[in-house]
Each structure stands twice: as C-alpha cells, then as structure tokens.
Simulated scan of single mutants.
Amino acid sequence: MFLYITLGTNDLARATRFYDPVMGTLGLSRLRTLEDEIGYAAPGDTRCRLWVTRPFDGRPATVGNGSMPALVAASRDAVDAFHRAALAHGGTDEGAPGLRPFGPSFYACYVRDPDGNKLSAVCEGPPAR
C-alpha cells in the first residue's frame, strides 16, 4: 500500500546515530545519505522505504500526534533488539516488548526517536522454539 514513509528530524546527524543501529535490528540499512535526508531499505531493495528528513519547507520538524509507522520484525527477538537499540541510542520507551491484544501472536514494542516520532516494531509470528 505505501511506497515510502517520511519522518521529520531537526538534527540529521543525531537521527543517523539513532536510525542506523535501530533499523539494523530489523535487517534494514541506510541506502541513501543526502544533505537533508537519509533513506533506509531492506536487503535487495533498491528503493528506500523509510526516509528521515529535515522538512522541505525549512520549518522545524514536529511530531504527528497519532502518527506511528509499524515496522515488520522477523522475530520476537528482533522486536526485543529494536527496543533495546532504540533506548541505547537516544530513544524513549512508549511500551516494552510484549504481546498485544491485536491478534494472538501480535508481539510489539513502541518507542520514540530523539525527535519524538513514535515507532513500533511488530512480529506476528509464533515465538521461536
């Protein structure tokens, strides 16, 4: 459904220090580095699906109240790693990893990046054996 998602930042260097390790826990890596934005892609994808950017209009980035991209995690361990990496790199906790009432295997965590953007990592698969 979505081609890509864009999140605003007021400090691209700080955002890079956050997003590089956090996206890495989900197998995503920075594919593009431009003057005002960075883009992340899955292995083998030539198109960035997540962009972090200074706003085009030059005004400060603000948080979208009620906005939250939920990123696919391959395992519950990846959700846990995402949460740990986010907190270790300047993010804040918005909900520790755990099962949620959105489905029998909906395992998720919620964090905010250093700019206040809310993110989630979700695994809908069964626990590892």
Rank of each mutant, 00 (worst) to 15 (best):
V63D: 06
V122H: 00
R84L: 00
P21M: 08
E94Q: 15
S29I: 01
V79D: 08
A78V: 02
S67V: 14
A15M: 09
L3D: 08
A78N: 04
F106Q: 03
F18V: 13
A41F: 09
T53V: 08
G39K: 06
F18Y: 09
R54Q: 11
R17P: 05
V79Y: 02
N65F: 15
D57P: 00
P97Q: 01
P21V: 06
V22Q: 02
I38W: 11
L31I: 04
C109R: 06
A61L: 02
R47M: 05
M23K: 05
R100A: 02
R32A: 08
G66S: 06
M68P: 08
N117L: 08
D113N: 11
R49A: 12
G64Q: 11
G125H: 06
P114K: 04
G24E: 06
C123G: 07
P55K: 07
A88H: 06
M68R: 14
V52N: 14
N10Q: 11
S120R: 07
R47F: 09
G64L: 10
G58I: 00
G90A: 06
D57V: 04
P21H: 08
H83F: 12
E124S: 10
T62G: 06
L26I: 00
S67N: 11
F18E: 05
P21N: 06
G39N: 09
A81H: 13
D115L: 10
P101I: 05
S67A: 07
R59I: 00
P114R: 02
A81D: 09
A85P: 04
V111C: 13
L26V: 01
L7I: 15
C123D: 10
P97R: 06
V122S: 05
P69Q: 04
S75Y: 08
R30M: 14
G90P: 10
V52S: 11
A13C: 08
D20A: 03
E35Q: 15
A128D: 15
F2P: 01
F82I: 07
A81P: 05
V22P: 13
A96E: 07
A121G: 08
P126E: 15
E35D: 14
L31T: 05
S29W: 02
G125K: 09
E35H: 15
G125R: 09
A70S: 15
T92Y: 05
G66C: 03
L71H: 06
A88R: 07
D57L: 09
Y110W: 10
V52Q: 13
A73D: 05
P97F: 13
V72S: 11
A70N: 04
T92M: 01
D115T: 10
L3Y: 08
P114E: 15
R129G: 13
G95C: 13
Y40K: 06
A81Y: 09
P101D: 14
E35R: 14
P60W: 15
T62N: 05
W51K: 12
A74L: 12
T92V: 13
A108I: 04
P21Q: 02
A108L: 01
L12S: 14
A61K: 01
R32W: 02
P55M: 09
D36E: 14
L31C: 07
L26E: 00
L34M: 15
D11T: 13
P127S: 14
H89W: 04
V63T: 14
P69K: 07
S75M: 08
P69H: 03
R59G: 10
T62A: 03
A73R: 00
T25A: 11
A73F: 01
D93V: 03
A41S: 10
R54N: 08
G27F: 12
G90S: 11
R30Q: 15
N117R: 08
E94W: 05
R100H: 04
P55N: 11
